[in-house]
Amino acid sequence: MRELYTSELEELEALLRDEGKLVDRAIRGALNVLERDDLELADELIAFDDEIDSRYLAIEQRIPSLLARQTPVAGELRLVLAILYINLHLERIADYCVTVAKLAKLAHGLPRDRAVLEALEEMGERCREMLGTGLEYFYARDFTDSQALIEMDRPIDRANRKLIDRLIALGPDESQREWAMRMMLASRCLERIGDHAVDIGEQAAYLVRGRFEEFTDASHKPPRATT
């Protein structure tokens, strides 16, 4: 029944999966740029954003048409809305990756600090994990544990704090300070990526449960005490 509609929905979700994979690779790329201080790779990453944008645009353009022509309702309406929002979050994550690449270019050749890079790497890897988890919730339409995403966010906060402590301790050297500033912004980008990953999880929860709720995060005290 309604084969055309069903196939359109499937295509839309396939596009989103595709975009999800590309965004994950973009985060990995951004981490590599930071790690290796590789200008060529940074440019490649910035160019790669066009790939992601093309998926983003394809989804963005199909949704109004799908809404107007097929008038999805109930679970399918939630699916289309969830895709619409997740698409936006993915695109934002990709933009942060580009920002990281640009910051890396600005910081090229400046003295680097191993501990800070390790903290960034740690944050980035957590972000990828969170993004993967959020998207997996969505793909599987299975939502059992909203807390897991929040829990994953904590190491990011910890790494972020450690990184700031370390940056402050870096000392008075001007080029060191410049590098520290750049890395702080990069850290901020990674942290935002984590937030978007949580939002994606929220969309998955909306799709499954039928009502939208924000997960408790750092700005909201969790309902029960955690260690």
Binding site: L15, L22, R28, L45
Partner: peptide, 10 residues
Amino acid sequence: MEAIKTKIEV
């Protein structure tokens, strides 16, 4: 970064 270079057709 080879991973990025492989393109996926839209």
